[in-house]
Structures are given as C-alpha cells and as structure tokens.
Design a binder for these strands. Structure first.
Length: 392
RNA sequence: GUGGCCGUAGCUCAGUUGGCAGAGCAUCGGAUUGUGGCUCCGAAGGUCGCGGGUUCGAAUCCCGUCGGUCACCCCA
C-alpha cells in the first residue's frame, strides 16, 4: 500500500541495519534527549564495540547518505524505509518497546515545496490506511538567528515564573527551554499561555519559509493548523516541524511526525546539506484507522462423510482454489453435523457434500447454505460442473 | 526511570474469616445412523504467571520475581 505511494512520489527504498554504533544515535538525536538518556537498547559485541538497536530511522538513512557519497548524485535524494524501531521504556496504549515505522527522508534541498510534498505524502499514507479526522500541526523552530533572539527571551520569562513550574520544566530552563511547552502539568500550561511565542521572533527568511509551506498545504487542501507550542523531542530538528494528530488515539495522539534537520548531515561527517523527513508508526495507524474488517468470505466448505471422501474432496477444493474460489475442508475430525456447523460459522456460501452415495454415483451434493436447497452436480469429468454451479 | 491497577479454563471474570478450583460465553458430542443457525442434555478443558516462605492445609497471607495494562516522562 505505502509502497505504491512511494513509487508515485518518486522515492526509492533503503534498508539500513537494525543496530548501529550507539554513537551515531547519540550524535544525531542529541545527548540530552530522553531517547539517548534512557530509551536505547544498548549492548557491546565481542570486540567491545558499543552498539544500539535503532530507536528511530533518520540517523541510519543519513549515515548511509554520507557513507555512500550520495551528495554527489543529482539532488534531492528521496528515500523511504520500513522496519522495526526499539525503545527501552514502559509501554502503554500506542507505545511499545518494539514498533514499526514507515519513514521518508529527502536530502539535498531546502525548497519549501519539498516540505509540502513530504507532509502530503505522510497525509496520503494515513488516508489510504483509513485514518480519519487527522490534522497536521505545523510549526517552525527557526534558523540560528531566530533562536539567538528567542531563546534568551523565553528563558528569562521562565525564570520569572520559576516557582509556578513543575520540577521537570524548571530543569529544562537551562538545558532546553523549548521543551517546557511539552509539559502536561496544568500550572505550567497556565504559565505558558503568557509565554512569548517563537512566531514573533522568526527571522524574515524563516517567516517567509513558514508561510510558503502553509500556502502549499492550503493549495493541496490538507487540513493543518499553526501550533506555535509544537516542539520536538529530538535535538536535530530545525526550521519546519510537524505532527499528524488523531483524536482517536488516547494519550499518545501523534500518528506520525517529522521535520527539517538542516544541520544533521554535516554533523554526521558529510557536507552542509539540508534534509527533511518523517516517521510514522504502523501500530498507531492501525489504532487510528477505524476497523475496516477484511470480511473473509468463503465460497465452499467441503463436508466429507467418510475417510474415503477426503482425498477426492481435497482434489476438488484444490481445483476450485486454482480458479479463484475460497474453499475449506474439515481438518478437525468433526461429525457431519459439526462440519455443517463449521461451514455456517465460516460463512460459506455452499456446502459441498461427499459421501458414499456421491462417490459411487460420481457426483457431489451442493447445498446452498442460504436457502437450504440441494442439487446433485456430476463431477466425473472433473470440477467443471461444480465450477459452474458455484459461479451462479 | 516513576506511579496506579491486573495475572485463575480458549475468552470475560467470580472465588467468603486460609478448608475438594467455579460460572457465562466459546469448543466437542448427543437429542436428529448423511445436513448449519434456535432449543435442550452432556463432555472435555486449569502448572491458579513463576520461585520461595508461613501453615496440618495457600488461588487466598508474607517476600521476591516475571509479564500485562493505564498514566507520567518521552515518543511513532
């Protein structure tokens, strides 16, 4: 499903290792991030190398980009991936120690329309998987100049209200004041309603970039909202950030999220190349997509009344399956009555009965499970007659 | 990493002051020698999460441990 979408958007699949040097994730995600501090599955191999199960997908893709010199290709390079991610943490609804992410990364362009495309792709994946009522929350964390002006203001504000904040938020004043916006503490939230917002401090370039992205989303009719309190827990984000939220999810309401990381390639040893990407959780998509049941329909259930009938029944079932019909047989040694019950339970359209009479007469009895009507269908020449009977 | 709740039959759960391990649903069979749904009758199914301890006796009390779940932190 997602594979087809990626093809249409021009992304090629990459497969990166499930575990890598721990240092890669520390450098990319940030030493102070919780992912690194407490959520990595960490281990040493026999040579003493420090490895970690990947907690997210971007770092591996960027490493591959640098390592394989993909910056020498025509830019941008558009890639996608699919696979398991690991976080060592207590689980709850919508959060697991191992989960599956679908992700995309675009490296080598800082065109705002790339941002729009990436968000549109995320939205399309969710739509086609059945996620409804989804809204894209959008923000811009600004460039270096923006932050140079904004962070001191925010920090000063938080200091003035230090006594009203929860302990976690107080601790962040020094390390990462932006993250105080993530607090769910009601008192902290109340204080932050008065806090200076980054929008007023955006540099001219950053502000223009943000409105270009918004115009693009507008043009595509993607429901979105500017959320100036949206910050992200990974340190590598710059400029555009976004989260796709669904009200159907509970405490973990983000289905997929991502943003720009214009400094990351260089930090991982490559040239100064901008990038953007998203990751989206398959398990959360399934939670947010309301039950679209596969509706298994069964065309025929074979009822065998004697052991001698089992092989002929199996042969007929195989022939019908080859023609595209869904067929089942009894493998539980049920009584005839039990086999009809099972046929009913499975929602079979027809029961095909094979017993002594049928075997010696060269026919089978086809029962319409809805009406109860029964007909004898000759099978001595093979399954052709039976096929016709079922296709009716 | 922090806190709450929960681990008993396939599923949902009862289980009294410690005294033979239960119900409903589901499964299988019978009532109907080869015919489903409804009804009735019956059968099968359990290391009571695991390991210690207390006791004549533990699903029940104590300690430990593992797992699940929800929330916090954080994140997909």
């Amino acid at each position: 499903m997602a594979r087809g979408l990626f093809r249409r958007y021009g992304y090629t699949e990459v497969r990166t290792p499930i575990f890598e040097e721990a240092e890669l994730f520390v450098r990319s995600t940030g030493e102070t991030s919780d992912i690194v501090r407490k959520e990595m599955f960490f281990f040493r191999d026999k040579g003493g190398r420090e490895l970690a199960l990947r907690p997210e997908g971007t770092a591996g893709v960027v490493r591959a980009y640098v390592e394989h010199g993909m910056y020498k290709l025509a830019q941008p390079v558009k890639m996608w991936y699919f696979g398991p991610m690991f976080r060592h943490e207590r689980q709850q609804k919508g959060r697991y120690r191992q989960h599956t992410q679908i992700g995309a990364e675009v490296l080598g362009s800082d065109d705002p329309l790339v941002d729009v495309e990436v968000i549109a792709l995320l939205y399309a994946i969710h739509r086609s998987a059945g996620v409804r009522e989804e809204v894209i929350h959008l923000n811009n964390l600004g460039d270096a100049e923006t932050r140079r002006r904004y962070i001191p203001e925010l920090r000063a504000f938080l200091e003035r209200h230090r006594s009203e904040l929860d302990p976690d938020s107080v601790a962040r004043i020094g390390t990462n004041p932006l993250r105080t916006f993530d607090s769910k503490d009601p008192n902290t939230q109340a204080v932050l309603r008065e806090a200076p917002l980054i929008g007023e401090y955006l540099s001219e370039e950053a502000a223009a970039y943000l409105s270009a992205v918004r115009e693009g989303l507008e043009a595509l009719g993607i429901p979105h909202t500017l959320d100036e309190r949206l910050v992200r827990g990974l340190d590598y984000y710059t400029s555009t950030v976004f989260e796709a939220k669904s009200p159907l999810l509970g405490a973990q309401d983000t289905v997929g999220a991502g943003g720009r990381y214009n400094r990351l390639v260089e930090e991982l040893g490559g040239p100064d190349v901008p990038g953007i990407g998203f990751g989206t959780g398959v398990e959360r998509i399934l939670l947010a997509a309301r039950g679209w049941e596969p509706e298994t329909s069964l065309d025929a259930f074979f009822v065998t009344l004697s052991p001698e009938a089992r092989l002929p029944a199996l042969r007929l079932a195989e022939a019908l399956r080859a023609e595209g019909f869904a067929c089942e047989l009894d493998y539980a040694g049920r009584s005839p009555k039990g086999q009809f019950r099972q046929a009913d339970r499975l929602g079979a359209s027809y029961a095909v009965v094979l017993g002594e009479e049928e075997l010696s007469g060269g026919f089978c009895t086809v029962r319409d499970m809805r009406s109860g009507e029964e007909r004898r269908v000759p099978v001595s020449e093979g399954p052709k007659e039976l096929l016709r009977a079922l296709a009716r």
